[in-house]
């Protein structure tokens, strides 16, 4: 039996990157986007609506997190328990910081769901430059299906069943990349940036474990691996957003850098509220949330970060 096509939702860079990776893996891609921006190829079919994606077994969600729920609802009508859904979005929903796999589960009949996390970037997927990431799912079949669909010599994919950890790590990295951009904007050097990254990741891991994730996930590709790629300069918008916040640029200008700002702002607020509620010590995230929301002046946030009492590692 020939392998079914792979569905992709989202015509942004990431959607196209996944489509090209599918093409390189010798499979057919079905890409659905309201604004596809580019023309299809021999192995990338642009489809006009969600119904056409039912033909696929594996469907990637490559859309910003605020749109995942409504698109999933629209698509869910055409799916059943045989479809696999995998998202690549950063973000948490609700007071209990649920990942987006939870949204996919509640809006569609699909249960075999997962998340793609780690230092995968759209450009590398498009050009075929070496990159990698981690696919998280409770279902080995989903992990294998993602590897088969986009893995290969250019895309090394590791897998984990720690969906909670991978999703939260991915969200946290988005925030920390913004925080590092913010630190850069304030002229803080590599040592201060490294301190910020390391302590922030330790905080994220504590929260992740409280949510039911595994500590080691934060030390892997979904956590540190992804953050290192951001700091090394893979041109993701979060760093630019962080620098813009540090420069006190108007909100609407920051919003135009990338759609991730408002998502990040919302996630930061949610995470900070959660840590207050469950009494988890999370000073870096709390300060980030306050600084991103402009509740405290940028300079004050940097001073507060540096003046925290240093404890045991």
């Amino acid at each position: 039996m020939s392998a079914p096509p792979v569905g992709i939702i989202g015509g942004g860079n990431f959607g196209w990157g996944l489509a090209h990776a599918v093409e390189r893996a010798g499979r057919q891609a079905l890409l659905w986007s309201r604004r596809p921006q580019r023309a299809g190829t021999e192995h990338i079919d642009l489809v006009s609506g969600p119904a056409a994606l039912a033909e696929a077994e594996l469907i990637f969600f490559a859309v910003p997190s605020p749109y995942v729920a409504s698109i999933a609802r629209e698509l869910g009508v055409y799916l059943d328990g045989g479809h696999f859904l995998v998202h690549i979005s950063r973000g948490v929903v609700g007071d209990d910081l649920h990942g987006l796999t939870q949204v996919l589960r509640s809006e569609t009949p699909c249960r075999r769901v997962g998340a793609l996390a780690g230092p995968l970037v759209a450009e590398a997927l498009i050009t075929g430059a070496p990159s990698g990431g981690v696919v998280a799912s409770r279902f080995p079949e989903v992990r294998a299906a993602v590897r088969e669909a986009i893995g290969g010599p250019a895309v090394r994919l590791y897998s984990t069943d720690d969906v909670t950890g991978a999703e939260f790590a991915s969200t946290a990295v988005g925030l920390f990349a913004t925080a590092i951009g913010f630190a850069q904007g304030h002229g803080l050097g590599p040592a201060a940036q490294a301190m910020l990254a390391t302590r922030a990741m330790a905080e994220a891991a504590r929260i992740g474990v409280a949510l039911g994730g595994k500590h080691e996930t934060f030390m892997g590709l979904a956590g540190f691996g992804d953050l290192m790629a951001a700091v090394a300069g893979d041109d993701r918008p979060e760093l630019a957003i962080g620098r813009a916040i540090a420069e006190n640029q108007p909100l609407e200008e920051i919003g135009s850098i990338g759609g991730t700002y408002f998502e990040g702002l919302e996630s930061a607020g949610r995470i900070a509220a959660y840590t207050r509620r469950v009494k988890l010590y999370a000073p870096v995230i709390t300060l980030c949330a306050a600084a991103f929301a402009r509740e405290i002046p940028a300079g004050e946030a940097v001073a507060a970060l540096m003046s925290r009492e240093a404890g045991e590692e």
């Binding site: 869910g76 059943d80 328990g81 075999r112």
Partner: peptide, 24 residues
């Protein structure tokens, strides 16, 4: 299903329409 439509429970234990036994 969340849409309010019936969904075939058999689809959850099938791959590409074929049911299977898969402990994992």
């Amino acid at each position: 299903a969340p849409s309010g439509q019936p969904v075939d429970p058999g689809s959850y234990v099938s791959r590409r329409g074929v049911p299977s036994i898969d402990p994992a």
